[in-house]
Design a protein around this nucleic acid. Structure first.
Lengths: 186, 186
DNA sequence: ACCTGAACACCGTTCAAGT
DNA sequence: ACCTGAACACCGTTCAAGT
């Protein structure tokens, strides 16, 4: 077989999207690669590290540099990009949020937002706080929306297709809170 | 033995606080109660439901009505109460955030914040968005802080005791964003 | 109403050994 | 460098049967 680390991550992304995070097990991944589960420990010290690599790969594929412009437009673009990337994969939001909470990965998402905020003129400490606040919102909102979507597709809870996402509205709220500190007129 | 539902939840809270969420298993809980794991399924249809009951009990113990006052002070108090309650239990933030994401419990936290926002004069739809945005921030911030604290107490990552929490600062940001919509002067 | 005992179909991880 | 095979110490859940 002779797989490399990148092959394992690639395959794991496929398993994630087809079967979900709960079924992304070392055993399933091994059998999908035609390899014993123990072989995976040649590439990753444990499952957590593997999941972090999967989260990072998923973000790397979905994120691209945010075009120049006013800081608030760039923040909107960066947050929208992160959100779209998470929602593009089954359980993507839960995976990245978990990995990020444990400090093992998902840094690209934070980087992207921090970068967009760099043009705001905010002091470094406050900029970090603003970045993390935006990230908590994006992760929390995406996780909730994705979980609900999947629950309703299973029929576990009744879907309400008329209900449009309030992501934009919530994001605008946080951005306005940042704007107050930047000193721009609201 | 003849335990009731409430006995099981009470015991589960003890296991949670002493051993953590990962070790709060049906088997461990059963042995702690002196009962077969299968006996627990007399009280709860599955583990998820049990965890939801534990999350709700934890919140019920920690939350109390927020005193009257200006809406922003009430929001600060409500969010602080939720945060303190989550941090008071090992893995409390992760537990409640998970249960809430799956829509199985944790509603008391959302209720508490929504109630505090009721005096803001915000239209219902926007008030719901504001509530969820605040909740995502509180859950996300508490989860990250608790995970980091526990990781550093294990020695997994180096602790930085000089680093003070930016919870107040992040919360103030979101509240200011809400204030813009309320129409109060910033 | 509450519980037992046994089973089913799984997990992550380790480790000596192989090529 | 990459993998096998076997083992260890676990999981959640079901179900017939007991009191």
């Amino acid at each position: 077989m002779a797989h490399r680390r990148a092959d394992v991550v690639q395959c794991a992304l496929g398993v994630l999207d087809e079967y979900g995070l709960a079924d992304l097990t070392m055993r399933r991944l091994g059998s999908e690669l035609g390899v014993q589960p123990s072989a995976l420990y040649h590439h990753f010290v444990n499952k957590q590290t593997l999941l972090a690599a999967v989260a990072d790969e998923l973000l790397a594929r979905g994120l691209s540099p945010v075009p120049a412009g006013p800081w608030d437009e760039r923040v909107r673009a960066a947050c929208g990009q992160v959100r779209d990337t998470l929602l593009a994969w089954r359980d993507g939001a839960e995976l990245v949020a978990t990995v990020h909470a444990f400090g093992l990965g998902g840094h690209a998402a934070q980087e992207s937002i921090a970068e967009a905020l760099s043009g705001s003129g905010l002091a470094e400490e406050l900029r970090l706080t603003a970045t993390r606040t935006l990230l908590h919102f994006v992760f929390g909102h995406a996780t909730e929306e994705q979980t609900r979507m999947q629950a309703s597709s299973i029929g576990a809870i009744e879907a309400d297709p008329s209900e449009t996402s309030d992501f934009e509205a919530g994001l605008a709220l946080v951005i306005d809170g940042i704007r107050v500190r930047v000193g721009d007129p609201v």
